[in-house]
Amino acid sequence: MIDAERLKKNWSLVASHGDQVPLYFYSTLFLTHPETRDLFPMNMAAQRDKLVNALGAVVSNVDTIDAVVPTLQALGRDHRKFGALRGHYPAVGEALVATLEHFSGPHWTPAIAADWTAAYGLVSATMADAADAAAHYTPAWWDAEIVAHERRDLETAVITLDPGNRIDYLPGQSLSLCTSLRPRVWRQYSPANAPRADGTIELHVRAVDGGQVSTALVSLVRPGDHLRVGPAFGTGLTLRPGRGPVTMIAGGTGVAPMKALVEQLAAAPRPTSLYWGARSPAGLYCLDQLRALASAHDWLEFVPCVDEDLFGSESRLGSPVELAVAHGRCSGADVYLCGPPGMVETGRKHLAGSGIRAEAIHFEPTGE
């Protein structure tokens, strides 16, 4: 029997050592099992944060493991793209326990060691079983050709991919991408369209400071180049069943999954409002497309929003979250929120402070 409280207290102690924890873990893993090094990118800076996030998620849910089984299964299927096999999981477990023991110091006990070993055993078995099952019916990745690449501004590109075969995903889910220009570095992007008959996928990419993959996708790739595409992941933004109103609140390229959801809703319309924000009108890079969607569907209201407007555009001044609440569009609606992490976190707090029920607010948690 795993003592969840004991694990949580131990993890709090270990996590207080900050960046030293992932550094020690990966050093231990690569020294004791050098064959695992090829599973990870050359630059490990971004990968280190993912370890801490993953451990925190496992520990906080270890006493209700059934609730996270679907997430763990999805992670197992997704990690096939790294080349992760069942045989790699014990090596990771050994390095994990060694790291926890090191940073626990005198607080480490045989009982805690047994708890961690059992918890990791549950997690790794769930992930490995799902990966093995997936290998029978779907590839670990697809090679997709870039058939269109349109720069909308210096930082943003709209890219159309043709994977050759239709990739199964739901509007609101994400696909992970890897380019040969940045080997073994994967980033998640949510398609801006519902699945199409021809299988093509539209992606909206904004280059971020220090973003290896986003910078390459915006500035370096061209039509005819190929990207590696992993399986669909995440359910935070997928459409919930019902007939009630829907309110979508997006910032920047967070409008991409909202556009896909609008296409899905066209098959069974519900009163829908889409509030999309940017710092200035220039940041509303697909304004004409979204206005055309709103014109084509009488059940869709589209409200572009900007923080500053020096040129007298038709956009509303203010944040999309604040405007949606002020206009009464969030009360009684399913609210979908997507954008930069800071915007999502601020938006959730504002919605909650405005009396919107937590279960009505849908978003995709950051971190893989």
Rank of each mutant, 00 (worst) to 15 (best):
E5C: 07
R6Q: 13
R6C: 06
K8D: 11
K9A: 14
N10Q: 14
N10W: 05
N10G: 15
W11H: 08
G18Q: 08
G18S: 12
Q20A: 15
V21I: 08
R37Q: 15
K50S: 11
N53L: 14
A54L: 09
T64R: 15
P70L: 07
T71I: 11
A74M: 12
H79A: 06
Y89P: 02
P90G: 09
A95L: 07
A98G: 09
E101A: 12
F103I: 02
P106W: 11
H107K: 08
A111F: 06
I112H: 12
D115I: 03
V123M: 13
A125M: 08
A130M: 07
A130R: 07
H136V: 05
W142Y: 14
D143T: 14
A144Y: 00
E145G: 06
I146C: 02
A157I: 05
A157G: 09
G164E: 05
R166L: 00
S176E: 00
R184S: 00
R187I: 01
Y189A: 04
N193S: 01
A194R: 00
A194N: 02
A197W: 00
E202T: 12
E202G: 01
S219N: 14
V221L: 04
V221N: 08
V221W: 03
L227R: 03
R228D: 02
A232P: 05
T235F: 04
G244V: 06
G252Q: 04
G254P: 10
G254M: 04
A256K: 04
V262Q: 01
A266M: 06
T272W: 04
W276V: 01
A278D: 08
G283E: 07
H297D: 11
E301I: 12
P304Y: 01
S315T: 15
V321K: 03
A324F: 08
R329N: 13
G332I: 10
V335R: 00
L337M: 08
G347K: 11
R357H: 10
P365N: 10
P365Y: 11
T366F: 14
